[in-house]
Amino acid sequence: MGLFKKLFTNKEKRKKAEKYKIGMMKTRKNTLSSLKDLLRNSKTIDEDLYVQLEEIFIMADVGVDTVVEFIEELREEVEKENITDPKDLENVIVDKMFELYLKGEVINTNIRYNEGDLTVILFVGVNGTGKTTTIGKLAHKIKSEGKSVMMAAGDTFRAGAINQLKIFGERVGCEVVAKEAGSDPASVIFDAIKKAKDDKIDVLLIDTAGRLQNKKNLMNELGKINRIIERETGSNIYETYLVIDATTGQNGLSQAKIFSEVANITGVVLTKLDGTAKGGIVLAIRNKLNIPISFVGMGEKITDLEYFDIEDYIYGLFSDFFE
């Protein structure tokens, strides 16, 4: 029960996590029944309470399977520890959420830089999740950490995508390697890696076209892109981020699963967390597929990208506990 206590009492931590809360809690008061109220107002731990707990997690888009599993574990814990007061569930729930995400592992989601050599980061995802914007934000972040950055306009399909990336390049102050619209993305990426190496760039961020995971041809194209990267960098260790929109529901799991089949997804970037969606599907993605979350996008400004922090995230989900 240590983590909960730590979160609950550490003021500094709470202040930092406020940012998550602001994004995630906007509609809590009127749409979700408050977890705190639920536990305070329940007299006993009964079936009705479990159903309402289930509701809260499902409303946060945590995968249905994962929620069912979670509630099951909660029941076991309640029985084992002989918990009778609903208020005591607070600790158990928060701790269980940590367990669900951490699974007893130490998760390091920092970018694995290829010290002294080129580090490649590939961005993939379905249409409209915010890949291009995320690249702009991450370029800004990496650059402000003192590294040189280059971008590759690998989305040659969507009208305007190349220019969108070029505008971000200007804002961040880094070069964008691009060809004309409609050209082969693999050739853009080939050129970009070569140029990045020649120019001794530290990090190359590669944009790709949005693709729905059930489009076989487009997924195969991703396989080709991976082969180019591996061949040209001489390494198969590089970050591939799957960009997922926080408003996405259960389909997020299918996205993570099928993208993992053609690419070695090393992390999820959860975007648009500044809306009212909770993005809970990422918990299911971690639970079912072991893919951690690396970054969260929480606004339209170039600085609105944060390293993911599970404590902050859980604080955001349950912040009414901490008030």
């Binding site: 888009d61 379905v126 929109d245 408003t247 529901g249 997020g252 809306g275 009212t276 969606a277 909770k278």
Partner: peptide
């Protein structure tokens, strides 16, 4: 693909 938030 929108989840529970579609209603909001």
């Amino acid at each position: 693909m929108t989840g529970q938030d579609a209603v909001n």
